[in-house]
Measured scan of single mutants.
Amino acid sequence: DETGKFLVLSLYDYQEKSPREVTMKKGDILTLLNSTNKDWWKVEVNGRQGFVPAAYVKFL
């Protein structure tokens, strides 16, 4: 199980638009929880879990 094993870097600021999403700032290091959807990845940032656009992050 690779859940929570990968870190990704936020390339852009992102403001959550729904309760299922999370806000991140450019340069944030996020824990990747799920990347099965090619468009939206589930991450943990600042103690919160939610989705961010996959195009806004990259693997470290």
Score class of each variant (00 low, 15 high):
Asp1Ser: 14
Asp1Pro: 14
Asp1Phe: 14
Asp1Leu: 14
Asp1Asn: 14
Asp1Ile: 14
Glu2Ile: 14
Glu2Asp: 14
Glu2Ser: 14
Glu2Thr: 14
Glu2Asn: 14
Glu2Gln: 14
Glu2His: 14
Glu2Cys: 15
Glu2Lys: 14
Thr3Trp: 12
Thr3Asn: 13
Thr3Glu: 13
Thr3Pro: 13
Gly4Glu: 12
Gly4Cys: 15
Lys5Ala: 12
Lys5Cys: 15
Lys5Asn: 12
Phe6Ile: 15
Phe6Leu: 14
Phe6Val: 15
Phe6Thr: 15
Phe6Gln: 14
Phe6Gly: 11
Leu7Asn: 06
Leu7Ala: 07
Leu7Gln: 11
Leu7Lys: 12
Leu7Glu: 07
Leu7Gly: 03
Leu7Phe: 14
Val8Asp: 00
Val8Ile: 09
Val8Arg: 01
Val8Ser: 02
Val8Trp: 07
Leu9Lys: 09
Leu9Thr: 08
Leu9Ile: 15
Leu9Asp: 00
Ser10Lys: 04
Ser10Cys: 15
Ser10Gly: 09
Ser10Leu: 06
Ser10Pro: 03
Leu11Ala: 06
Leu11Glu: 04
Leu11Val: 09
Leu11Lys: 07
Tyr12Thr: 10
Tyr12Trp: 10
Tyr12Cys: 15
Tyr12Lys: 14
Tyr12Asn: 10
Tyr12Ile: 11
Tyr12Asp: 07
Tyr12Glu: 11
Tyr12Phe: 13
Tyr12Ala: 13
Asp13Met: 03
Asp13Glu: 06
Asp13Gly: 05
Asp13Ala: 06
Asp13Tyr: 05
Asp13Ile: 04
Asp13Phe: 04
Asp13Cys: 06
Tyr14Pro: 03
Tyr14Ile: 02
Tyr14Gln: 01
Tyr14Leu: 02
Tyr14His: 05
Gln15Asp: 15
Gln15Tyr: 14
Gln15Pro: 08
Gln15Asn: 13
Gln15Ile: 15
Glu16Tyr: 05
Glu16Phe: 05
Glu16Thr: 08
Glu16Trp: 05
Lys17Leu: 09
Lys17Tyr: 05
Lys17Cys: 11
Lys17His: 08
Lys17Ile: 07
Lys17Asp: 06
Ser18Leu: 08
Ser18Asp: 12
Ser18Met: 07
Ser18Gly: 13
Ser18Thr: 12
Pro19Val: 09
Pro19Asp: 13
Pro19Trp: 11
Pro19Phe: 10
Pro19Gly: 09
Arg20Ile: 12
Arg20Gln: 14
Arg20Leu: 15
Arg20Asn: 15
Arg20Pro: 05
Arg20Glu: 12
Arg20Cys: 15
Arg20Val: 12
Arg20Ser: 14
Arg20Trp: 15
Glu21Gly: 11
Glu21Pro: 04
Glu21Leu: 05
Glu21Trp: 04
Glu21Val: 04
Glu21Ile: 04
Glu21Asp: 06
Val22His: 02
Val22Ala: 05
Val22Trp: 04
Val22Ser: 01
Val22Tyr: 02
Val22Arg: 01
Thr23Val: 04
Thr23Glu: 03
Thr23Gly: 09
Thr23Trp: 04
Thr23Arg: 05
Met24Tyr: 02
Met24Pro: 00
Met24Cys: 06
Met24Phe: 07
Met24His: 01
Met24Trp: 02
Met24Lys: 00
Met24Leu: 09
Met24Ser: 00
Lys25Glu: 07
Lys25Val: 09
Lys25Ser: 09
Lys25Phe: 10
Lys25His: 10
Lys26Ala: 13
Lys26Trp: 04
Lys26Leu: 05
Lys26Met: 08
Lys26Asp: 02
Lys26Ile: 06
Lys26Tyr: 05
Lys26Val: 08
Lys26Gln: 10
Lys26Arg: 11
Gly27Lys: 02
Gly27Thr: 01
Gly27His: 04
Gly27Pro: 00
Gly27Leu: 02
Gly27Glu: 03
Gly27Gln: 01
Asp28Ser: 07
Asp28Met: 13
Asp28Tyr: 04
Asp28Thr: 07
Ile29Tyr: 06
Ile29Val: 12
Ile29Phe: 06
Ile29Met: 07
Ile29Leu: 09
Ile29Lys: 05
Leu30Gly: 08
Leu30His: 02
Leu30Arg: 00
Leu30Cys: 13
Leu30Met: 15
Leu30Asn: 02
Leu30Trp: 02
Leu30Asp: 01
Thr31Lys: 12
Thr31Ser: 08
Thr31Tyr: 12
Thr31Asn: 09
Thr31Arg: 12
Thr31Gly: 05
Leu32Arg: 00
Leu32Trp: 02
Leu32Gly: 02
Leu32Pro: 00
Leu32Met: 05
Leu32Asp: 00
Leu33Tyr: 04
Leu33Phe: 03
Leu33Lys: 04
Leu33Pro: 00
Leu33Ala: 02
Asn34Asp: 15
Asn34Glu: 14
Asn34Trp: 07
Asn34Arg: 05
Asn34Ile: 07
Asn34Val: 08
Asn34His: 06
Asn34Thr: 07
Asn34Gln: 09
Asn34Ala: 08
Asn34Ser: 13
Asn34Phe: 06
Ser35Tyr: 11
Ser35Lys: 11
Ser35Ile: 09
Ser35Phe: 11
Ser35Pro: 08
Ser35Trp: 15
Thr36Pro: 03
Thr36Gln: 13
Thr36Asn: 12
Thr36Cys: 15
Thr36Gly: 10
Thr36His: 11
Thr36Ile: 09
Thr36Val: 10
Asn37Arg: 08
Asn37Trp: 06
Asn37Leu: 09
Asn37Glu: 10
Asn37Ala: 08
Asn37Asp: 15
Lys38Gln: 10
Lys38Phe: 06
Lys38Asp: 10
Lys38Gly: 09
Lys38Ser: 12
Asp39Lys: 13
Asp39Leu: 12
Asp39Pro: 02
Asp39Cys: 14
Asp39Ala: 10
Asp39Thr: 12
Trp40Gln: 02
Trp40Leu: 03
Trp41Cys: 05
Trp41Thr: 03
Trp41Leu: 07
Trp41Lys: 01
Trp41Val: 08
Trp41Gly: 00
Trp41His: 02
Trp41Asp: 00
Lys42Tyr: 15
Lys42Ser: 07
Lys42Thr: 06
Lys42Ala: 08
Lys42Gly: 05
Lys42Ile: 13
Lys42Cys: 15
Val43Ser: 00
Val43Asn: 00
Val43Thr: 00
Val43Pro: 00
Val43Gly: 00
Val43Cys: 04
Val43Leu: 02
Val43Lys: 00
Val43Trp: 01
Glu44Leu: 07
Glu44Val: 07
Glu44Ile: 07
Glu44Phe: 05
Glu44Met: 08
Glu44Asn: 05
Glu44Arg: 07
Val45Asn: 10
Val45Leu: 15
Val45Pro: 00
Val45Phe: 13
Val45Trp: 06
Val45Asp: 02
Val45Cys: 09
Val45Glu: 01
Asn46Arg: 10
Asn46Tyr: 08
Asn46Ser: 08
Asn46Ala: 10
Asn46Trp: 05
Asn46Met: 08
Gly47Val: 02
Gly47Pro: 00
Gly47Ser: 05
Gly47Ile: 02
Gly47Thr: 04
Arg48Asn: 07
Arg48Cys: 06
Arg48Tyr: 06
Arg48Lys: 12
Arg48Met: 08
Arg48Gln: 09
Arg48Ser: 06
Arg48Gly: 04
Gln49Cys: 11
Gln49Ala: 11
Gln49Pro: 06
Gln49Asn: 07
Gln49Met: 09
Gln49Ser: 11
Gln49Gly: 06
Gly50Phe: 04
Gly50Asn: 01
Gly50Tyr: 03
Gly50Thr: 02
Gly50Ile: 03
Gly50His: 01
Gly50Trp: 03
Gly50Asp: 00
Phe51Gln: 02
Phe51Asp: 03
Phe51Gly: 00
Phe51Trp: 13
Phe51Arg: 02
Phe51Ser: 02
Val52Ser: 01
Val52His: 01
Val52Gly: 00
Val52Asp: 00
Val52Met: 03
Val52Thr: 01
Val52Leu: 04
Pro53Gly: 02
Pro53Gln: 03
Pro53Phe: 04
Pro53Arg: 05
Pro53Ser: 03
Pro53Val: 04
Pro53Tyr: 03
Ala54His: 03
Ala54Tyr: 02
Ala54Cys: 07
Ala54Trp: 02
Ala54Thr: 05
Ala55Phe: 09
Ala55Asp: 09
Ala55Glu: 11
Ala55His: 13
Ala55Met: 12
Ala55Thr: 12
Tyr56Leu: 13
Tyr56Asp: 03
Tyr56Arg: 04
Tyr56Met: 12
Tyr56Trp: 06
Val57Gly: 00
Val57Trp: 01
Val57Gln: 00
Val57His: 00
Val57Thr: 03
Val57Ile: 10
Val57Met: 05
Val57Asn: 00
Val57Tyr: 02
Lys58Ala: 15
Lys58Ile: 15
Lys58His: 10
Lys58Asp: 09
Lys58Ser: 14
Phe59Ala: 11
Phe59Gly: 06
Phe59Arg: 11
Phe59Thr: 10
Phe59His: 10
Phe59Asn: 08
Phe59Cys: 15
Phe59Lys: 11
Leu60Asn: 05
Leu60Met: 11
Leu60Cys: 13
Leu60His: 09
Leu60Glu: 07
